[in-house]
Amino acid sequence: MDATGSRSGAPMIRLAGVHKTYADGTVAVQELDLEVGEGELVCLVGPSGCGKSTTLRMVNRLVEPTSGRIEVDGRDVSAVDPVRLRRGIGYVIQQVGLFPHQRVAANVMTVPLLSGSSRADARRRALELLDLVGLDPATYADRYPHQLSGGQRQRVGVARALAADPPVLLMDEPFGAVDPVVRVRLQDEFRRLQRDLGKTVLFVTHDIDEAVRMGDRVAVFAVGGRLAQVGTPAEVLARPADEFVSGFVGATRGLRRLSVTTIHPGLVEPLDGVAAGDLAAAVEIGATLEEALALMLRDDRPMVGVRDGARFVGVLTPAGVHRALRASLRED
């Protein structure tokens, strides 16, 4: 990666020297350089007023930059008609923004119809997407938004953003208005969906735990629109770039590393002498230390079983968790 954090190959989103100053003199974003690779999910995280949502809105020209250049798929967005640009970029916000007088399927059909699809094709696409985000079309397609829970409305918002099959998704605090249990479920399901579809995602959040859980990389913004650090979740947690980042990720960043450190065969201890009753439910190789430790605590057992597919390969103990955390710190 270079200084902007770009992966190899041409970036799908590129911001070069982007600056935004409002008419009252407020500096929202300072000389921002950031690249997002194709199929990558980058979380923009920071306190209120740090410019992360402004950055997101400059990508689809809901806000115009004062200076600098923004490209999506190699095209300067300032040279693209803003309406056409927005129809080709998925956009999901916290309040969802569904049309209350339209049924769920009609909400999802909006962009395909505006882009020239027939009603039959647009409805077919809408039903496929509702199924993709976990809403049975037979049950939900003809309901109105007020008949859905908050989590269900967010799923419809994601389906609508995907309706035109955009290469890029912009998501602004999309799960912030739902309760914590539903929020974690939506995070996990969206991450799986994003990996399956290969979309490029810019995801705004104020929650460092959500950023660590969701992002391939995390871009930490400081007040005043300064990009303080960009890196993988493990890098940001292990090596904060400055005092601001260190304070923002918190004194518990060592614990947060549990969610980004995975189990590998070298951590697993043999099954010899282990009784089945001593085991909590098993986790897979590649699961996180957080998942394994949660199972141990849930079942009040001194270890958790580890599988590699159908094969049971050994156990992970608290001592193994400690070794893994120390090893990941040394690697970083």
Rank of each mutant, 00 (worst) to 15 (best):
V212N: 03
F248R: 03
V27R: 10
V83F: 11
R143S: 12
G74T: 10
D24A: 12
A211N: 06
L297N: 12
A219K: 03
M296P: 00
V83R: 11
K199G: 12
V283Y: 01
E290Y: 14
L41K: 11
Q30D: 10
D332A: 15
P174W: 00
V201C: 10
S117R: 15
L132M: 14
I89F: 03
T55Q: 05
A10D: 15
R323S: 09
L297M: 14
G37E: 01
V104M: 06
R69W: 00
M12P: 00
G286H: 03
D272M: 03
L34S: 06
V63P: 01
P112D: 04
V92H: 02
L41Y: 08
L227V: 12
G224L: 08
A327K: 09
L148Y: 08
L170G: 02
T139G: 08
A327R: 13
A159F: 01
V321W: 01
R14D: 14
A28V: 00
A141L: 10
T288F: 03
L129H: 08
E31V: 11
I285E: 12
R183W: 09
L279S: 05
D207G: 09
G224R: 08
S48M: 09
A105W: 02
V249T: 00
P11I: 10
L170F: 04
D300A: 15
Q229E: 14
P180Q: 10
P166K: 11
P240G: 07
I70N: 08
P302T: 02
L169I: 15
V260D: 03
P167S: 15
R185V: 13
E128Y: 13
S8N: 13
V184Q: 10
P240A: 10
A23T: 14
A161T: 06
E243I: 00
L44R: 06
G17D: 12
A234Y: 00
I13R: 05
Q95D: 15
D2C: 05
D81G: 03
S115Y: 07
T252D: 15
D196M: 05
V29Q: 01
E284K: 12
A122H: 06
A228G: 10
I285G: 07
V27E: 08
G250I: 03
P265L: 02
D308C: 12
G116E: 07
L85D: 05
V96R: 00
A282I: 02
V96F: 08
V29H: 04
G215C: 09
R75M: 10
V77F: 13
R160W: 09
G134S: 05
V63N: 13
T262W: 07
E269T: 10
G225P: 02
G305C: 04
V204C: 12
V92T: 01
E189F: 03
E31H: 15
E35C: 08
V204D: 02
T261Q: 08
E269R: 14
G157V: 12
T26A: 12
G74S: 15
T288Q: 06
G320L: 02
P65Q: 10
R195E: 08
V283T: 06
M58W: 05
A3R: 15
P318T: 09
C43Q: 07
V236N: 06
R185L: 15
D332N: 14
Q30P: 00
M109R: 08
A292G: 04
E269D: 13
D308P: 08
L130M: 13
G250K: 00
P270D: 11
